[in-house]
Design a protein around this nucleic acid. Structure first.
Lengths: 239, 239
DNA sequence: AGAATAGTGTCTGTGAGACATTATCTG
DNA sequence: CAGATAATGTCTCACAGACACTATTCT
């Protein structure tokens, strides 16, 4: 990379500076309820307050905003290689006392087991409906994230990222039910999973909780680690 | 560490500057095909090249990014009060020779008739598949916009914004068919419009092209000017 | 009257949900 | 063998699409 300060901008047309940040809504399922991760802020404003993991874009380190979000996730939650989707931009002069700011918000879904170490080091988990005391417009961001995830859950493979592979279909079904907030018909659910075709069986079975037939174990097909599998006709409530 | 006092940010923790811009994909239907608007750039880089209407965020003028996009639309395309939806953020150090930049991209849909004046003043219209010669990553942005609009068209009221009210149901159906790229079943289409419930009849009828029964005229219910009406089960092809 | 398009009634096949049944484990 | 849960077979009803029919205009 030899490219120096090639294209300078004439000072008179340089716009006023905008603060450019990234915030990540890290979602996981804890005791059957959707939670998001918070960390204590280490600087003003709101020093010490629990907030979404985030930070300024570092143009020297981050090739783009996705890389920035991945860095934040690595540094603040010890998470690597997760499903990561851009949510929306939250912007304006009112949301941050330091000035006109842009927050590029991301959503990521991880199985609870992948957070154990970070939770030991101070990462917090809060229910997505418990939004009190969040700084900036982080409550809006979390609401947008959980709305997005819930609505996508009804017609896509998205919820699978909350399951630690390998997992059974009954386990995955209960994850869908937690997100959708209602029971799902078992036969329809399995038909839909077959149609979406994002799972592959893992050889070997699990027996868990003793006295019953063992269940087949499954994992996500690798080509769906970032792309979602979607269907026109959603998964509906059942039984 | 941080010695940030009240509002000021200590210089040592100030991140490198990021260029913050807005780009708008203005879509309309021309001769039954989806087109996007371009304007000649009035400054380097790419001065004189046809590009998406856009520009730097002006923190003094724009309360937030949506207001900025609306200002751009007003100034460069003479459009006011359109349906406007945030598309995505395009970011990184590679997309703009001036440095690490963020483009907050928006999509807007307008009826062709509302562009007549601006087209007379130099606004260009290009087919969404004709992406040659666009600067920056504008081709990616247009692709993302048309993909988004096409996919939302199958299950929402989105295409209605391409129709100048009042319009007839056959006219609206042909707009849906243009976007979906396939014919739609008339009975299903009308059932779906009734279910989505975003239209209201306008008193008076139109007769057009003479010799046949006149059609009822419709317009969008006001509460759907920004919000979309959505359905689980999409509009599918027919006949 | 006839042509042309708007708008509706109705049949049918597909597929989602309900329910019943089989399968396979533990104790 | 009983009990528990996994997995599947099958019936039914709702709804999307097909098709035919009616409605209303103009020439």
């Amino acid at each position: 990379m030899q490219k120096a300060k090639n294209m300078a901008i004439a000072p008179e047309i340089l716009p006023d500076p905008v603060l450019c940040t990234v915030d990540v809504v890290l979602l996981t399922l804890h005791l059957g309820e959707l939670h998001f991760a918070v960390v204590a802020r280490d600087a003003d404003p709101f020093r010490g307050v629990q907030a979404l993991p985030g930070g300024f874009v570092h143009p020297q380190e981050d090739a783009d905003a996705r890389e920035c979000a991945l860095r934040v996730l690595r540094e603040k939650a010890g998470v690597s290689g997760p499903y990561l989707e851009q949510l929306s931009v939250f912007s304006g002069r009112a949301r941050d006392p330091r000035g006109w700011s842009v927050s590029i918000a991301w959503v990521t879904l991880v199985p609870e087991s992948s957070l154990e170490e970070a939770v030991g080091k101070g990462l917090g988990l809060r229910k997505v409906h418990d939004l009190g005391g969040l700084p900036f417009d982080h409550a809006d961001i979390v609401r947008a994230a959980s709305d997005r995830v819930r609505s996508k859950s009804s017609y896509s493979s998205l919820p699978v990222h909350l399951c630690q592979p390998p997992f059974t279909l009954p386990e995955l079904q209960s994850v869908y039910e937690s997100l959708l907030g209602e029971p799902v018909n078992k036969v329809s659910f399995r038909r839909k999973m077959a149609e979406l075709d994002f799972l592959e069986p893992v050889e070997g079975e699990m027996q868990r909780s003793g006295a019953h037939r063992p269940a087949q174990l499954w994992r996500l097909k690798t080509r769906f680690r970032q792309a979602l599998s979607m269907t026109d006709r959603g998964i509906n409530s059942g039984t």
